[in-house]
Design a protein around this nucleic acid. Sequence first.
DNA 1: ATCGGCTCGCGCAA
DNA 2: TGCGCGAAGCCGAT
Length: 451
Amino acid sequence: MTVDSRRIFTLKQADTEPGTVVYWMQRDQRAGDNWALLYAQERAIALQQPLMVVFCLVPGYLGATARQYGFMLKGLAVAARRLSRYNIPFTLLHGLPQDVIPRFLVEYGAGMLITDFNPLHVPMNWQKRLAERVEVPFYEVDAHNIIPSRFISDKQEYAAFTLRKKVERLLPEFLTEFPLLVKHPDFPDSAEVPATDWAEVMKSLQADRAVPEVDWLVAGETAAVGSLSDFIGSRLDQYETGRNFPDRKGQSDMSPYLHFGHLSPQRLAMEVRQNEADPGSRKAFLEELIVRRELADNFCLYNASYDRFSGFHAWAQASLNKHRDDPREYCYSLDTLEEGRTHDPLWNAAQFEMVSKGKMHGFMRMYWAKKILEWTASPEEAMEAAIFLNDKYELDGRDPNGYAGIAWSIGGVHDRPWGERKIFGMIRYMNYQGCKRKFDINAYISPNRKS
DNA sequence: ATCGGCTCGCGCAA
DNA sequence: TGCGCGAAGCCGAT
């Protein structure tokens, strides 16, 4: 067996019947370095069956906009092209997975269904409904985490340090080279599928076009690998210090690729580990890429309230409740926040960076979210506003990282309590003064000013 | 410029 | 049961 069984979770137990193996691609939108696809091929070849890939395009998914749909569809087109070279047909289905996939399975005589892992509510529910409606064995393969999320822990981890210990123990077993995808053999029942007209799909898409696509980052697994080389070659060496300074370009800019699965985190981790850049910088990057990113999946997998006040630790809820009625010096509406018209030029710049570029600097994301807590009527409203704006404008919106980051900022999730103060209670505080001490705020504000 | 305290609870050692 | 220490900070004392 080439794919570790600890990556695999059974969604529907059923006898294996002969028939095409179908990979329902969700989160890991790539042909290369994809454990779910590799497992599907492994099973297909063992059973002497054809292999097909489907993706379900669901309009209005969690408020996604033209910016995110555009990036995703371009990446999918790349993946479909690559898959065809491996003799694996790709089909884009329109509609809810539980409605369209069962029909597809019947139409192509499928004998097995495989998907990848996504801990968010909406895709988990799709998966559940679909499992109720299929007759064939249905497996989930974690192609997103280096150490499979369901395996590394069976509960919500308290903080990074509790997960880190487990990561350190298990990493040698899981951070290994991928087997190669092979050109799929022509088995008797191999089917032809109509080619996807990507231009037409883009044109007919129902998505908010007021949030346009961006042109600074090219979608797809080919571009992702190029972008990875660029980061490793030019910025990895200074990553340890550079990443936390919003006035410099020190971040990897990999998160949109990781979010859509255009790039495998495992590939990225291997490339960074084998590189000869500064050891401190490599360690810092791997900490963020592995421990903190996989901690976010753990949080969403085991905390059903990952996007709400009720998902915070008891101490944080109690503390925020105690300060619920504290007067707010500034209290902004969602519109004012969205338009970046607060009294704080640094916050407005962060908002503008996100709106125009589709990616806010990581350090500023913390400051940005904490100020939303300070400047809205309640922590619930703060959560809602932060998530709404994040998901509307960020290329990597609707990602566990986003929910975990916002819950960290507003609700102290994975953090510890700090000195009690107005509004925040014991939630870690951040302020303008601190940013001013830390970096050249004007160098960040100037290029991110609304013209 | 640097340092300790802030405040809670997990996980491990004993 | 005790104890060390923790996702990115702030603030006041030295």
